[in-house]
């Protein structure tokens, strides 16, 4: 096992890096998607609300793997060819965005209506109240669920391996098939995922504690 680890280490490091940045970029984009969808569902015109609700329903009701395959293999059939990495980032962002939109929507609804009114009475616009008054308070409420979404995202990047993206899982599979050390490689990669996500959990707990203490 140690031998396998030593030989595969350079690939694994490279792959860990790919996994992490795929996760971070996709998650950041998913927050933007989630915010947009949440605001549209709460305050948009009726037609857009319906579209946004349909988007959330479809995305949550279909497997992520199917979505990735559809975007990567399906779109070229319509003349839209997307490279593997952008295709994965797009899919992950939309997929996670549907989930985070629900968190963000709940967080915004949990803020008292009086906060909107207090912002409005000093002459602030909708966008100003949203950005300055509502979102900062919503963030406090939804940080725990967003933290969990981020960890889920790191794990979901493994599905990128099916469309040739060389991230952790793909490296395990490649090295495994070349050396017949499948068990070792997948155990190593599992430990790496677990380690990274445990670190993230610790960071998340700290952030939550910090946010709970704020404003006291």
């Amino acid at each position: 096992m140690l031998e396998t680890l030593r030989n595969a280490a350079p690939f694994l490091l490279q792959a860990l890096w790919t996994t992490l940045w795929l996760g971070v970029v996709s998650f950041a984009l998913s927050l933007a998607v989630g915010l947009l969808v949440a605001v549209v569902r709460l305050y948009g015109p009726p037609i857009l609300r319906l579209l946004a609700a349909a988007f959330v329903s479809v995305v949550r009701g279909t497997p992520l793997l199917t979505q990735i395959l559809l975007v990567y293999y399906g779109l070229p059939q319509l003349g839209v060819t997307i490279e593997a990495i952008p295709a994965v980032i797009l899919t992950l962002a939309l997929h996670a965005g549907a989930y985070t939109s629900e968190d963000i929507r709940g967080g915004m609804q949990s803020v008292d209506r009086g906060q909107w009114e207090a912002g409005y009475t000093v002459g602030m616009s909708f966008a100003q109240v949203l950005r300055r008054i509502i979102l900062p308070q919503a963030v406090q409420v939804i940080t725990p669920s967003l933290g969990n979404r981020f960890i889920t995202m790191i794990k979901d990047t493994s599905l990128a391996s099916v469309v040739t993206v060389v991230e952790l899982t793909r490296v395990a599979e490649q090295v495994g098939s070349a050396t017949f050390r499948y068990i070792e490689m997948f155990v190593i990669v599992a430990i790496i995922y677990w380690g990274a996500n445990s670190l993230l959990s610790v960071g998340q707990a700290r952030l939550e504690r910090h946010l709970r203490r704020a404003y006291q």
Binding site: G114, Q115, A118, T121, G123, Q128, R132, P136, Q137, Q140
Partner: peptide, 27 residues
Amino acid sequence: AGMVFQSFNLFPHMTALGNVIEGPLQV
């Protein structure tokens, strides 16, 4: 036309000063 509510509606994530200067800053 300023307004003072029965239930205060202060912004809980801002200090007293932050509450007071929010309108002047943003608006």
